[in-house]
Design a protein around this nucleic acid. Structure first.
Lengths: 345, 345
DNA sequence: GTTAGCACTCGATTGCTAAGAGTGCTAATT
DNA sequence: AATTAGCACTCTTAGCAATCGAGTGCTAAC
């Protein structure tokens, strides 16, 4: 069930490219004419027939042309897709957009999601960089009213968590500032566990605050990813396979419910992988909602330290080449940005 | 073109309710049977005919039942919709969800968007509370690396803006903290203009920072709304009027591009209004993309001080009653929360 | 003002046919 | 042994006519 002849591989490539572009079953005669193969349609038919037997193609009905199967796409992505890079002008344009932006993670994320959606003509998912293990950097406490206090916790890597907390009794801004500064000095660079230990040696206000910091850091540790940014949902609806809208609804629904994303991004499913980029075809290994879809995912950031994910969701009939190149380029770009953020002066 | 008899109003109400529920043209015979009118279908036909002439109903084709026109919906919303409140248990359930949440604006927004989408079976839009005019409350500066500094600006009303800034030369955390504290003392409660004036009397680091604060506050003043939260996009796709997907794509696209929302939320279009809630039917006064849609919008917060918007976008055939009650209830709930935030101890 | 009755309209459904696209198979060719 | 021409077969699609039925408007009677 394995080896394909050179010609079969070529034909499979042609069919997939053509089908991705036109969304129409492609037949033997059409192939011969369109691509000036020096062959007769009958020969091509024989080849298609074996491709069919091997499970890479199928016919929607007896008298239709061929359409790639999931396995077909998988073979294509795994063996036939040459590993192109984004053209240099495009790369520069994208990089330029990032570097002329204010230094703001949220805006980077939005930009990345937008670019990704635009280049892949599909829905994009980007998660904010998230530390593998939270490490304390800085704490601020700001009085709002009465016992309510805004706690701002900055982690190594630049993640900023803000949270309103309620103390047991009113405290002046003066006291809060002192506590914050004292804790900041004590806790710099501490992990959650270390914060936990240190909290034992504290008392009063500082201990209360330290416990809240601990709690927040723990929840950062547990939560496997940062904020999720979506874009390009409307692209998915433009695809002909989603005109009946039922499937489209399911797919979009799964994006809206970020919980599914969580599962997806966290567990790495064994599947096609092209240079660090995961390709899930036909929603393999995920829930049924995505059976019609393909996903392209990759991690960015500094492994083991601070990472985030980039992803594209579209129909199986998706421009894999372009999507993969874009995702790979964005991944390296964001990785650089994250790395910059990490290497403290 | 104005006065309708009681019976005509009743029939119009029945038709609209039924059409909203079933999305099928409703005919005279069906009405008589279904609702036990003590009338013959012929009589009803006469009435429908005048309703037709007045422009409140129309027939998709000669031999079909009646369907409400935009004007029909408008009349319904303006004159026939009795101003129901959400049932008390529902109100309590919703309120409970809010009050058992951590005190966090972002989470409130998400929750509001989610509840709104769920109750209206349509797409919801919620913007974060945004001050009419920014007033300074607190400033923090946190060293990240070299000349790069995280500036956290807290405004009266609780809005927190964070931004990475780059100084002309490296400064120690010590100096930053002092500058932040000094500025905070000086600027408390200042408007953007006042910050501008005070900046003139400062020098060195403090002046640089004050200018950045000014800039940020100005941009808050210019930007008419806070962050936008969407939910329930997939609901829109479920509606039969959007199966052909082209219109749906347009509509969703307009939501994705928040710029359109801006136009929409900022300019208040003269239109049906029910107790402070604006109802735009058939996308009146907006761009063509929303011609198929209705929007229900309202403001919440403390007028003139801190406000945000709540909105629902769905097909014209939309459960106006429920959507309006939900939106109104959420609006009062969020207003209370915002007010709480404002009334400092 | 209401109603029964009737002719009429027009979308939806059904059944049929013809055209067309594409296949698989076989036998002839290289 | 691979290629090809030819042909029978299958199945979708478009088009067309016939029928059905829901729903209307109108008129005349109550």
């Amino acid at each position: 069930m394995d080896e394909l002849t050179e010609r079969q591989r070529y034909l499979l490539t042609l069919i997939i490219h053509d089908y991705i572009q036109h969304a129409h079953p492609v037949g033997s005669k059409y192939l011969v004419n369109e691509f000036n193969l020096g062959l007769s349609s009958a020969t091509v038919r024989n080849e298609l027939s074996t491709l069919d037997e091997k499970g890479y193609l199928r016919q929607p009905h007896t008298s239709a042309g061929r359409v790639p199967t999931e396995d077909g796409y998988r073979y294509f992505v795994g063996h036939l897709l040459q590993n192109t890079e984004l053209p240099s002008p495009t790369r520069h344009m994208i990089a330029h957009q990032f570097y002329q932006m204010p230094y703001d993670v949220e805006q980077w994320m939005r930009l990345a999601a937008s670019i990704l959606a635009q280049h892949s003509h599909a829905a994009s998912v980007v998660t904010a960089p998230h530390p593998e293990e939270a490490r304390f950097k800085h704490l601020e406490l700001i009085q709002t009213r009465g016992r309510q206090v805004l706690m701002i916790l900055v982690l190594q890597g630049g993640e900023v968590d803000q949270q309103y907390i309620t103390l047991t009794e009113p405290v002046s801004q003066q006291q809060l500032s002192e506590a914050a500064q004292s804790l900041t000095n004590r806790l710099v660079n501490a992990s959650a566990d270390q914060v936990g230990h240190m909290a034992l040696n504290l008392s009063g206000l500082e201990q209360d605050i330290a416990r809240l910091v601990l709690q927040e850091m723990k929840s950062v540790n547990i939560n496997p990813m940062g904020e999720v940014f979506l874009d390009g949902i409307s692209h998915v609806l433009a695809e002909p396979e989603f005109v009946d809208s039922e499937d489209a609804r399911m797919a979009i629904r799964s994006l809206e419910e970020r919980s599914i994303l969580r599962d997806l991004l966290v567990s790495s499913h064994p599947t096609s992988e092209v240079g660090g980029v995961q390709v899930l075809i036909g929603g393999e290994g995920t829930r049924d909602e995505l059976r019609q879809c393909s996903l392209i995912l990759t991690q960015y950031g500094v492994p083991g330290m601070v990472t985030g994910m980039l992803g594209v969701m579209g129909p199986m009939r998706m421009p894999y080449g372009r999507s993969i190149s874009t995702i790979r380029f964005l991944s390296s770009l964001l990785s650089d940005l994250v790395e910059d953020t990490l290497t403290e002066a």
